[in-house]
Design a protein around this nucleic acid. Structure first.
Length: 260
DNA sequence: ATGACCTCCCGTGGAGGA
C-alpha cells in the first residue's frame, strides 16, 4: 500500500496536475498541504470522480490540509493540534483510514528568524511533539506526514552554509525534529536512503530544480508498530518538472500488510 | 547581499512562501 504526502501549493490552481499524478501513482492514502482554499472551495466532487474520498480543513488564501483515500472515506479523528485553543491556522488534520491513524501536517515556515513567526513555529513544534507522544501511547500503527518545514541534517540541504540563519534549518528546530525521531518515530525516507541527498522541494527561483538545488522538508514518520512494514520510500521528482508544478514533489512510502 | 518566481486575494500591487 502506497502512502504519499504532497504540498500542492494551491489545490484549485493545481487540480489538473494533482489528478494526473493520482492517476499515475495510484496512492492509497494521500496527505495534502497548502490547499490555499476555504472549506467550500475544496474540490470534493472532482476527487470523488477520480476515486478518492477525503477529509479536509481549509482556510482562505493560506495553509489548509487534507487526507485522501482511494475507494474509501477517511474517518476524521482530529482537525487541530491540541495545546493552543486560539490558533486558527489550518495546519493539522488526522483520520483513521485503512487500519492506520494518519496525521497530516503543515508546520509553520517560521521565517524570519528571530521573530514572532519563529516563536509560533517553536510553539507549534512543541505541541506536535506532545501530540506525537500521545499517538505513540496508543500503540496503534500511525503515521505523521506532511511539510515539516525543517531540513533535519546538512545532508538535506544543497548548500548548508547558506541556510544557517533560516528558520527551516535553525538548530532549535532541527533539535525538535530529532526529538521526534528519538522518541520512536522512523524518518521513512532517510531510513530507506541512508547517507545520500534526496530532496523534496526546489524553489521556483533561479532555476533551482534544473540545478538540483533542493531541500528535504517533506517527511513521513512511522510509529514503531508501523515501521517494520516499511518496504520502500521515494520522491516522484519528475512531477516537479511538469508544467505548472508545485515547488514540492510528492513523497511516498510503500508498506506491507499487518502481521497476521 | 539581494532577488529570483509563484500562489492567493477582490488585487490591479501586497503578502506569504522557503
Amino acid at each position: 500500500m502506497k502512502i504519499a504526502t504532497f504540498n500542492v501549493n494551491g489545490i484549485n490552481g493545481r487540480i489538473d496536475l494533482l489528478l494526473r499524478w493520482l492517476a499515475e501513482a495510484e496512492p492509497a492514502i494521500v496527505c495534502l498541504q497548502e490547499l490555499k482554499a476555504p472549506d467550500d472551495r475544496f474540490p470534493t466532487r472532482t476527487l470523488e470522480e477520480a476515486g478518492y474520498g477525503s477529509v479536509w480543513l481549509g482556510q482562505k488564501s493560506w495553509n489548509g490540509v487534507a487526507i485522501l483515500a482511494k475507494g474509501a472515506t477517511p474517518i476524521l479523528t482530529r482537525a487541530a493540534l491540541p495545546g493552543e485553543a486560539d490558533d486558527r491556522q489550518s495546519r493539522y488534520i488526522e483520520a483513521a483510514v485503512e487500519g492506520l491513524l494518519v496525521g497530516c501536517l503543515y508546520l509553520p515556515n517560521g521565517n524570519p528568524w528571530p521573530g514572532a513567526k519563529f516563536d509560533y513555529k517553536r510553539r507549534w513544534f512543541r505541541r506536535l511533539n506532545r501530540h506525537a507522544q500521545s499517538l505513540l501511547d496508543l500503540k496503534v500503527p500511525a503515521i505523521l506526514a506532511g511539510d515539516f518545514n525543517v531540513m533535519p541534517t546538512e545532508l538535506d540541504v544543497y548548500n548548508p552554509s547558506r541556510w544557517t540563519d533560516d528558520a527551516l534549518f535553525r538548530p532549535e528546530i532541527r533539535r525538535d525534529f530529532a526529538r521526534l525521531v528519538a522518541s520512536g518515530w522512523t524518518d521513512a525516507l532517510r531510513d530507506r536512503h541512508p547517507g545520500q541527498p534526496i530532496y523534496t522541494f526546489w524553489k521556483y527561483f533561479r532555476n533551482a530544480f534544473a540545478r538540483d538545488a533542493g531541500l528535504r522538508i517533506d517527511h513521513l514518520l512511522l510509529s514503531p508498530t508501523l515501521a517494520p512494514r516499511l518496504q520502500a520510500a521515494g520522491v516522484d521528482r519528475h512531477v516537479r518538472g511538469w508544467t505548472g508544478s508545485s515547488d514540492h514533489a510528492p513523497v511516498w512510502i510503500e508498506i506491507g500488510g499487518p502481521e497476521p
